[in-house]
Design a protein around this nucleic acid. Structure first.
Lengths: 239, 239
DNA sequence: GCGATCTTTACGAACATTTTATGGAACCTT
DNA sequence: AAGGTTCCATAAAATGTTCGTAAAGATCGC
């Protein structure tokens, strides 16, 4: 009944990942947040959260600090390797030190338990408010002979459709969204394979090779998918 | 003496607007934040803050709630009409309702007084962290015939593009970011090769030579990449 | 079990960096 | 002013990484 609900309610279909090992917490969050119209998924620890995020990218992450396997601070660090998604830490620990550590590890907000649900909801809204740009992504990318349909996950080169595997597609899209910009190996690996794969540049070599075989006219002298030696790769939208 | 740590100054030159009518608060914030390297301006109420922001756009706004003329919530609404700048509300009022109202009015964070300065600093860092790169650093450096595109990692001299290796690129960028300023051998070596390579000036000679071959019209009488004998090198942006 | 996809391995070629060598210029001492 | 020393520029050899490619194992879904 707060006085401030003027029809700005575009919160539907926003995905929230809740990470906590205490069932009481996850249960109440799941029901409350679901009632607000959010899509909720729950993970019981940091590792599980990372695993989940490979296939399901949330708009906000809410995480506890104390967890088995991978704690909240570690989770923040790992997530920041691959994503800018807002992270709200929810913890019983209220000391400066804990807050500073979490915030500097990549968290965007820190709420101490016990917390007011109204406040948490408002903080979620505040976080969601400034990520509309990410959601307004075009459903298609075109560049030169290229057209990438993001909804259908299909790619056409000079008229004819080519079939790409999921990872090939993700890789191409990630680069094609940043035309002309060099993306480092680390960034690319973290974004496509997850933050644990940051030290496996072989993946990139293999998949870039595969991609070039499919989308380049002459794979041995690529026009679109270019190597920036010792640094990374970049996508050029046809010269 | 000790190694010059140029890499750690990302928070410098960030502008923070403090809005509060209590002199004790503004005084302590001004001194503490200034000591951190931020540029601080103070306004005593919301109206004054808006006036100030016409000519001086901050990277973060920190505001009290209770103020004459225009209070914190009103300030949030007005600011949101024209800017996405992060707003941190600082207030003695700790009730849900106040928090929800402020956050829904456009605030990004809410801290209750009395507050821990360490926590506030961390929250400021968290807010600054996600302001888009466009605001932080130019993605291009231009100087005379030069243009360096940091995203594309490409360098153009008088129209034609030259390809630089990673170390060459890093070296040039480091110097070009400080035009006219002499950078000592030690500093350069520490910055590009790491603090363990401070005693290997041969690297510099070799790489400066290669850079000159690529970017100077007459490498034997350089125009841009100049030697400061016995001290270091400096970049001049074309006389 | 089968096909598609992903992961892992291996190796020659291409490339960047490090090391070494040489000649010349600038500085210091006497 | 001569000799010795340190620094600078350049070239080129030696070393070490990375890249592209192919192909063999591992994994997943049906």
């Amino acid at each position: 009944m707060s006085a401030i609900d003027e029809g700005k309610m575009t919160d539907e279909h926003r995905r929230i990942l809740v990470v906590d090992d205490e069932p009481q917490i996850t249960r109440v969050l799941r029901t409350t947040l679901s009632a607000q119209g959010y899509d909720i998924r729950v993970a019981n620890d940091g590792e599980m959260a990372l695993e989940l995020m490979k296939n399901w990218t949330p708009h906000v992450v809410i995480t506890d600090l104390a967890m088995p396997n991978l704690d909240g601070v570690g989770l923040c660090r790992q997530v920041r390797q691959m994503s800018q998604v807002p992270i709200i830490v929810l913890s019983v620990r209220g000391q400066d030190r804990a807050k500073v550590e979490a915030l500097d590890a990549g968290a965007d907000d820190y709420v101490t338990k016990p917390f007011s649900m109204n406040e948490l909801l408002a903080r979620i809204r505040a976080q969601l408010r400034r990520t509309p740009a990410a959601e307004q992504q075009p459903s298609a990318i075109t560049a030169g002979d290229f057209s990438i349909d993001l909804d259908a996950r299909s790619v056409k080169v000079a008229g004819n459709e080519v079939h790409l595997t999921p990872k090939e597609f993700d890789l191409l899209v990630y680069l094609a969204r940043r035309p002309g910009k060099v993306v480092t190996h680390r960034t690319l690996l973290a974004a496509i394979w997850g933050p644990n794969s940051v030290e496996q540049p072989e993946y990139l070599r293999v998949f870039v090779g595969q991609l070039r075989k499919k989308i380049e006219i002459d794979p041995s002298s690529p026009k679109y998918l270019l190597t920036e030696p010792w640094v990374g790769y970049r996508f050029e939208s046809g010269l």
